[in-house]
Design a protein around this nucleic acid. Structure first.
Lengths: 339, 339
DNA sequence: TTGAAAGCGCTAACAT
DNA sequence: ATGTTAGCGCTTTCAA
């Protein structure tokens, strides 16, 4: 073995003066090896800088100790905390997490699912329930354990670890209505293959339909993670002269912050001239001035629960149930009573 | 093959009526297979939902099409944009990215390096240059291509794709000095195994040493990513009565935002009562009020360049050179002339 | 252009 | 407690 080539079990075995099986046992089931032998092997491993080849290991044991997650994008802080928690729980069980990003494109999500499965992912974390039939067929045919996070449904077709976007937005809208607002606008990102946003919009609509003489305008902006585009949408809404909204509800905090910034740029005072709300309660919600009224989502708990669920399935407990996490409206200064 | 088990090359070969070698060629070198045969195989692959087993593939071809990255944490937005760009470039070349987080702990970083190598990572993205000798020895002995990002050094021992933290902070400090400030405090995260922070502090010190009758206090807070802890550090600094600083320079934007929030809580006006600066120019720098004077770091370009470099090495171009990216001071309202 | 067969590095069943 | 050995799924010679 030269210094440049990868050491293998045989190298370790030879150096330690034992068989390859013993080396393997030292690594995987150390309690089945005598203290003395283990020491010898450990020294040899250290000496050679040996790390087992994953391919061989996976092939022989049919266990990859790997899970996969596909998120829309890392740039939206919405996912960072949840995924970090997800990873931490997995790491505690010696499981490696593979992360890919789909850029909100279901085609790319499908490709990445296939890649991750090829890589040996024993389970998958997916965001939201909206994806092409083809993708679900693949998951089903290959019998791939998967958890859908960031949303929740009552159907029993999949396992969800999420929250009720519809209900949460309905609640927030009720709060807004209770404050006397009657003309409401929503700034939302695209809803194609994004059921979280769809549900949030429906939730707002449901709340409004119960109250007379209210109006709701939905303004779409091109992405879910660009504050600037939300600013443009805000500007256009302010040009309305019929049913000009007194409150702008944004489909997430990033867009809401964009709206607040634009309001400032237009010399409008939030909340005196216009109220603005968000959704998610990520860090910037507290940082922006005025602080953002939003819906708090327990991201860390969601990530942890999703990981635990996949670990349970991996351990053979196949009867895992969906978990619905609560959300709550967080009142801060960006929303106030209609004057 | 039941519906639940994984299809293998043999299944595909049988269904398409060809040999396994032909199936393999269809997947890897399609131009070496006749149009007609390829069609048959493609149909069979589709039919079975076949995805090649990574373990077998890696073992046989010794190519994993995989790179690894180990970042301190996902929760600090500092890394999100750079890593996203890094991943995008890799994905365009059909390379999967494996991401792990070390929590700023060099021991865990070392473990994750080993795991990623086991998984077949053909190259590694690492953050910063400070890590135990043991880690570098491992990288060297195994001859693992790696790029060090988020910092830059002139030594030729490693490949860097980063910026000069020392120089950037020196520049920012010069700006601060030019505005008449003479009593400066730094709020910084831990410097153990964090050369970026170390360099930033040294850079500030270097700038100050050139000017007479200046003072510099360095206040450490327990983490690099907690705004609240920075707030506490800020509070303690404000209790000084000798050489009370007129400007607080924070080692990153997250800490700076924490300081601003605390100033507000203490009814102090930024920048009238106290100036505050950050480092990184992440999204919140523009969002916080007042907007943060900070150092802009080209995170996307850094991630892209790092990916390109690793791809080049993978393609056999071993003579890659370090890349130093420029930074620039961004003046916003959190810093003003000393009155 | 295609097929037959060896072998990548490892684990696990079996034997001792 | 340890060794021997078959074989995981794939790619890649080599031969046809």
């Amino acid at each position: 073995m030269t210094a440049r080539s990868k050491p293998k079990v045989d190298d370790v075995a030879k150096l330690a003066g034992v068989s390859t099986a013993t080396v393997s046992r030292c690594l995987n089931t150390p309690d089945r090896v005598s203290e003395e032998t283990r020491k010898k092997v450990e020294v040899a491993v250290e000496e050679l800088g040996y790390t087992p080849n994953f391919g061989g290991r996976y092939l022989a044991s049919n266990s990859s100790k790997t899970m996969g997650a596909i998120i829309p994008t890392m740039e939206n802080a919405i996912f960072a905390r949840g995924i970090q928690a997800f990873q931490e729980v997995l790491a505690n069980s010696g499981i490696t997490l593979l992360i890919s990003t789909s850029g909100y494109d279901p085609e790319r999500e499908f490709e990445h699912i296939q890649t991750l499965i090829s890589q040996g992912a024993e389970g998958l974390l997916l965001i939201g329930a909206a994806r092409p039939k083809k993708t679900y067929e693949f998951l089903e045919r290959r019998n791939i354990p998967h958890v859908i996070a960031w949303n929740h449904r009552w159907d029993r077709k999949h396992i969800y670890v999420g929250f009720d976007n519809y209900f949460a937005m309905q609640e927030l809208t009720n709060t807004v209505l209770r404050m006397g607002h009657r003309h409401i606008a929503i700034i939302a990102g695209p809803t194609t293959y994004n059921d979280r946003i769809e549900d949030r919009i429906s939730g707002a609509q449901a709340a409004i339909e119960k109250i007379d003489e209210t109006s709701l305008i939905v303004k779409f902006c091109p992405t879910n993670y660009s504050a600037i585009q939300a600013g443009q949408a805000f500007e256009e809404l302010m040009e309305l002269d019929h049913h000009r909204p007194s409150v702008i509800m944004c489909s997430n905090d990033v867009l809401a912050v964009g709206a607040i910034m634009q309001a400032k740029a237009m010399n409008m005072n939030v909340p005196d001239d216009i109220s603005i709300t968000g959704f998610d309660d990520i860090e910037i919600a507290e940082i922006v001035a005025p602080a953002l009224t939003t819906v708090h989502v327990p991201h860390r708990r969601m990530g942890q629960a999703a990981a635990q669920l996949l670990l349970n399935i991996r351990a053979g407990k196949l009867d895992q149930k969906s978990i619905k996490l609560g959300t709550n409206v967080v009142l801060r200064n960006s929303l106030r009573h209609k004057t």
